[in-house]
């Protein structure tokens, strides 16, 4: 793979301040971080330690007060607004902690929204959105409005929206916060599948069980990285955790019990279709960079 050596993300002493005067405090306090392509990072830490702030920064939604941020080797401070928007649109998928769906748009329109800024026409957009929603078992809810959904369903819609533009960098802020453990693992499987296909994932979570999917776990404390551990994920350890889960008794009803097998096969077929795309996507930014 060309450019495999170059880190996707490189943060140098990044500082983000909030408040003024005596109230001033650093939400991010000299954060240094290097993320290589294809990593799956779980970010943990107590509430208010700066996890969301970090993701916003990485997602080009917020600017650092100090320090440097290199995305694909390029200093983001120098990028124009249009360029940043273009990178967000093509390269980055964000799942927000509070979902951030547009209330007056239907589920499918919400999911299709990022593709609008690709200049994709409406029909194609809705087709693509429908495909992604299918992999999260939300096809029947396509024409619902967000307020007509359960918390967990909203969360899945938010994830679907983050994935619809097939981003190479996925930033997920507690993507399973509202989900029961089985639904959590469905989401995690989806992220794991994206990870296997070479996408980079940074996920904030409070659930230590879910770190088993990650290749690296970062612990944050008071705006700083307190610990940073690489985990070797073997196929064996993964099957073990999955088996462990299936043995675990679940609280959900019987009707749901047959679902997982069916779901995973349905998912396979959709993911296979999309398989080729991320590789092409990864080449695209490099080309676009050359253009600029």
């Amino acid at each position: 793979m060309p450019g495999a050596k170059q880190p996707v993300i490189r943060l140098k002493d990044v500082v983000k301040k909030y408040g003024l005067g005596d109230a001033e405090h650093n939400a991010l306090n000299k954060v240094n971080l290097r993320v290589d392509a294809g990593e799956f990072i779980a970010v943990m830490g107590p509430s208010g330690c700066g996890k969301t702030t970090l993701l916003n920064m990485l997602g080009l939604l917020d600017r650092a007060d100090d320090g440097e941020y290199f995305l694909d080797g390029k200093e983001v401070e120098d990028l124009s607004d249009a360029r940043r928007a273009h990178i967000r649109s093509r390269q980055i998928g964000i799942v927000f902690q509070n979902f951030n769906l547009i209330e007056k748009m239907t589920v499918i329109e919400n999911v299709a929204l990022p593709l609008t800024y690709h200049g994709m026409n409406r029909v194609k957009r809705l087709e693509a959105a429908s495909r992604v929603l299918g992999s999260f078992h939300l096809n029947e809810r396509e024409y619902y409005l967000p307020h007509q959904l359960s918390g967990g369903q909203i969360q899945r819609v938010a994830i679907a929206r983050a994935l619809v533009n097939q981003p190479s960098l996925i930033l997920a802020d507690e993507p399973t916060g509202n989900l029961d453990s089985r639904s959590s693992h469905i989401i995690m499987e989806e992220l794991a599948e994206l990870h296997r296909r070479g996408n980079t994932i940074i996920m904030v979570t409070h659930n230590p069980n879910l770190t088993s999917y990650a290749s690296r776990v970062i612990n944050m404390l008071d705006g700083q990285i307190a610990s940073d551990k690489k985990i070797r994920v073997t196929a064996k350890s993964r099957t073990e955790t999955i088996q462990l889960r299936t043995v675990k008794p679940t609280t959900s009803d019987k009707a749901n019990k047959k679902a997982p097998a069916k779901k995973s096969s349905a998912k396979k077929s959709t993911t296979k279709k999309a398989r080729k795309k991320p590789t092409r996507k990864k080449a695209a930014p490099a080309r676009a960079e050359a253009d600029a």
Binding site: G59, L61, D81, A82, R84, A85, H86, R88, S89, R90, I94, F96, N100, L101, I102, L113, P114, T116, Y117, H118, R161, N165
Partner: peptide
Amino acid sequence: TREIGIRKSVGASSQT
């Protein structure tokens, strides 16, 4: 305002 924030976060530029 929120809608604008969301649109920007999923890839809309200021120009858009």
